[in-house]
Simulated assay, not measured.
Amino acid sequence: MAGIYIHIPFCKQACYYCDFHFSTSLKKKNELLLAIKKELVLRKHEFGNEAIKTIYFGGGTPSILNSKELHEIFEVIYSNYTVIENAEITLEANPDDLTSEKILELSKLQINRLSIGIQSFFEDDLKFMNRAHTAEESKKCLKEALKYFDNITIDLIYGVPNMSAKKWLENLKIAFEFGVPHISSYALTVEEKTALASFIKKGKVAPVDENLALEHFNLLVSQTQKQGFVHYEISNFGKPAYFSKHNTSYWLGENYLGIGPSAHSFNGTERAWNISNNAKYIKSLEANILPITVEELSVENRYNEYIMTGLRTIWGVSFTKIETDFGSEFLQKLKINAAPFIKNGLLQIKNNPDLVSVLLTTKKGKFLADGIASDLFII
């Protein structure tokens, strides 16, 4: 079964650290939503009769859309695709959008999971990031959302300059007290061409401290474990039965359709991405032309992607899958390349429940997973 990702490229204001594709101007919103609905129709046969098990509204800030706009997108999806019963349907939302009235309206749509961009429960952190909401709005919207939605995940950012361990622990404590069943947490990273990168370059902001981020990460892992969360992917912690089905499908290499400007798609052998320009995206769809670039993945590309995603998850990299999908030569190279990391206590080999040998990061290696994966790549 497949998933659909819909990119809504609008935000009220630009967060200093963000390099996703978005616009703070809503002038072309109606035209862009028409283009998104047209793209959904034009691509409805792309995965044949494969059923849709997850739908994810990302961005940008999808909660900027009103109920009527979301309803119209759902009408197009359900008219053109086979969506399974009880599909996981997620909407990313910012606290400043989640008024009591908005939450009630969302609960009456097909949406059954909210991903709320809290980032921090402290006002000074939110100002540092240039978030549009306040700390009070974060707490108020969570209290209200939990009345209508059982499946809620929140985003928290760690490694913020001058954020003490005590303050990070307090962020986690507040999240635990609300009883949210899922937390996605990311280290603050400096992306090129962002305001944060410019501030650091000019000396207005202290550089990101990797040691601080590591300290916060270790606290995150230990504290969530105490609360019964499963650390099932490097940045994701879920209570049993509350793992993100949509994001898990990415990590397990399942098919997904990316709709909207800058959205990516994957069908097992090809990766595709839409143009990252709202005006050009709209103009192209008005002419019934898909503004998409397609890349056929080489065996090496597919192998590298599997290594990258596998090492980030509790499912690891299956030796059987490597040999079946890529051949014994790839498996042999993996074992040779992984040996130094196993010796240094960063990787380990275990048997999964099906008695298949899998390569996993150790507790020591989790924070370094992406770097380790890149060293295992076949160029």
Rank of each mutant, 00 (worst) to 15 (best):
E233D: 10
I234E: 06
I234Y: 03
S235N: 08
S235K: 06
N236E: 09
F237N: 03
F237P: 03
K239P: 09
S244A: 13
K245D: 14
K245Y: 09
T248P: 01
T248Y: 09
Y250P: 10
L252F: 08
L252W: 08
L252H: 10
N255T: 08
Y256E: 02
Y256W: 08
L257Q: 04
G258L: 08
G258Y: 04
I259D: 01
G260I: 02
G260T: 05
S262W: 00
S262E: 04
H264M: 09
H264W: 11
S265F: 05
S265P: 07
S265A: 06
S265E: 09
N267A: 05
N267K: 02
G268A: 01
G268S: 02
E270A: 09
R271A: 05
A272V: 08
W273P: 09
N274H: 02
I275W: 00
S276A: 15
S276Y: 07
N277D: 12
A279E: 14
Y281G: 00
Y281K: 00
I282A: 00
I282F: 00
I282R: 00
K283H: 07
S284H: 04
N288K: 07
P291L: 01
P291M: 01
I292V: 13
I292R: 07
T293Y: 04
L297G: 00
L297S: 00
S298F: 06
V299I: 15
N301F: 11
Y303L: 08
Y303I: 10
N304V: 13
I307P: 04
I307Y: 03
I307C: 06
I307F: 03
T309R: 04
L311D: 08
T313W: 05
T313S: 13
T313Q: 08
G316Y: 05
G316R: 05
G316T: 11
S318W: 01
S318Q: 05
S318N: 05
F319Y: 15
T320C: 04
I322K: 00
E323R: 07
E323C: 03
E323W: 02
E323L: 01
T324A: 12
D325L: 14
F326N: 10
G327S: 08
S328E: 14
S328I: 15
F330Q: 05
L331V: 02
L331G: 03
Q332H: 13
Q332V: 13
K333C: 10
I336C: 03
A338Y: 05
A338R: 01
P340S: 00
F341L: 04
F341C: 03
F341K: 01
I342F: 02
I342G: 04
K343D: 15
K343Y: 12
N344E: 15
N344P: 03
N344M: 12
G345Y: 02
L346G: 12
L347Y: 01
Q348L: 13
I349E: 15
K350M: 03
N352M: 11
N352C: 10
N352T: 13
D354G: 09
D354S: 15
V356T: 14
S357G: 14
V358M: 11
L359F: 08
T361G: 13
K364Q: 15
G365K: 01
G365C: 07
G365F: 03
K366T: 12
K366M: 14
F367A: 10
L368G: 05
L368D: 06
A369F: 04
G371H: 05
I372H: 02
A373V: 10
A373W: 03
I378D: 07
